[in-house]
Simulated assay, not measured.
Amino acid sequence: MSDMLVTLALILGKLLFIFGVVLFMAAYLVLAERKILGRMQLRYGPNRVGPFGLMQPLADVIKLLTKEDFVPARADKWLFLIAPGITAVTALLVFAVIPFGSPLEIFGRQVPLVVVDLNIGVLYFLGVSSMAVYGVVLGGWASNSKYSLLGGVRGLSQMVSYELSLGLSLVPVIMMARSFSLTDIVMAQQSIPFVLLNPVAFGVFFICVLAESNRIPFDLPEAENELVGGFHTEYSGMRFGLFFVGEYINMVVLGSLVTVFFLGGWNGPWLPPLLWFLFKVLAVCAMFIWIRASMPRLRYDQLMNLGWKILLPLSLVNILVTGAVLLGLG
C-alpha cells in the first residue's frame, strides 16, 4: 500500500511540475516573441509593465479574465464553449510521454523523469496530437461565421495533409532506435543525435511541426488579413486566451518532441541533463520565432503542393534509403 502511495505521489509531483513549467514557459514565450519581433522590426515591444516589461504576461492574463465572454446568438453554444479547451488540453496531454531528464534517485528508488514511459509513446503522440484539429474545426464551425468556418476548414485540410508526412518522417527514427518508446529513442542518441544521422527526416519533421502549430508561414487557419481572425474570430475573453495560450503550449510541446526525436533529448556534456533538455527546447522555440519574423505566409496552393508533392514523396524515399542503409550495416 505504501509503495502505491509513493508511486502516486511521484506521478502527481511530476504532473504538477510539468504543468507549472509548461504554463510558465508559454506565458513568457509570448513576451519573448513580442520583444524579439519588436527588435527585428525596429521597435521596442512590451516595456511598460514591470522592469523590462517582465510583468506583461500577468497584465495580459488579468485583461483576458476581465473582458466580456460572449457567445454569438446563432452559435452552437456547447461546441463553441468546449472547443478552446480541446486545443489546450490535447497539447498538455502529449507531455505525459515526453522524458525530460535522466532518472533521479528519490525516496531510495530510481524515478524516471517522465509521467508515463509507454512502450508505444510515438503512437500515443501521433494519436493525441491528431485530436488537436477538433478544437480548430469545432471552434470554426460552431461560431456560425463564414470567416470562422473558412479558418476551420483550412485548419482541418492543413493538419490532415501534414500529419501524414509528420508520421512518415518518424519511421526512420523508430528504425534507428528500434523502439517506439521516447525514452529508448533518447538513449539511442547518447553518442550521436539523429539530426546528424538523418537530416532529411529532421527537415521534414520540423516543417510539419511548423504546419501543425499553425505558425507563419503556415498560419492559413488564422490569416488575419484574409479571415479577420480565422477560426477564433468570434471568441473573446479567456476563451480566446485558451486558443492563444494553446498555441504557445503547443510550441513548447513540439519543441520538446523535436528535442527528443532528433537533438538527443537530455544528452549532452558538462551541464545537468534537465538543463540540456530545457536549453534545446528553448533553442527550437527561438527558431520558430525567427521564422515568424523572417518569412511571408504561403498561398494555399503552395501549402498543399509542399505537403503532398514534396514532403510526402521525400518521406517515403527517406524510409526506403534508411531501411537499405540499416540493412547494409546490420
Rank of each mutant, 00 (worst) to 15 (best):
M1D: 09
D3L: 15
M4I: 08
V6L: 15
T7S: 15
L8G: 03
I11A: 15
L15R: 03
L16G: 15
L16V: 15
L16C: 15
V21A: 09
A26V: 04
V30D: 12
E33S: 03
I36M: 12
G38R: 02
M40K: 08
Y44H: 14
Y44Q: 14
N47G: 13
V49P: 02
P51A: 09
G53E: 00
L54D: 02
M55S: 00
Q56K: 02
L64I: 08
T66Q: 10
E68R: 13
A73R: 14
L79D: 05
L79Y: 10
F80N: 01
L81V: 11
I82M: 14
A83Q: 05
I86R: 05
A88K: 02
A91I: 06
L93A: 11
V94F: 12
V97I: 15
P99T: 11
F100K: 08
G101T: 06
P103L: 14
F107M: 15
P112N: 11
V114T: 13
V116G: 10
G127W: 11
M131E: 09
V133I: 13
G140D: 07
S143R: 01
N144S: 07
K146S: 12
S148P: 05
L150I: 11
G152P: 00
R154Q: 03
G155W: 04
Q158E: 12
Y162D: 02
Y162C: 03
V171R: 03
V171G: 04
P172G: 08
M176R: 10
A177K: 06
S179Q: 01
S179H: 06
V186E: 08
Q190E: 13
V195Q: 10
N198W: 05
A201H: 03
G203M: 07
G203D: 05
V204H: 06
F206S: 02
V209N: 07
L210I: 00
A211I: 05
E212D: 12
S213E: 04
S213K: 00
R215H: 01
D219T: 03
D219Q: 07
D219H: 07
E224K: 03
N225M: 00
V228Y: 14
H232K: 00
T233A: 06
S236F: 11
M238P: 02
R239V: 07
T259R: 09
F261P: 04
W266K: 10
G268C: 06
P269W: 10
L271S: 04
P272N: 10
P273F: 13
L275F: 11
W276N: 07
V284F: 12
F288W: 01
I289K: 04
I289L: 11
W290I: 10
A293K: 04
Y300W: 15
L311Y: 06
G323D: 07
L326M: 11
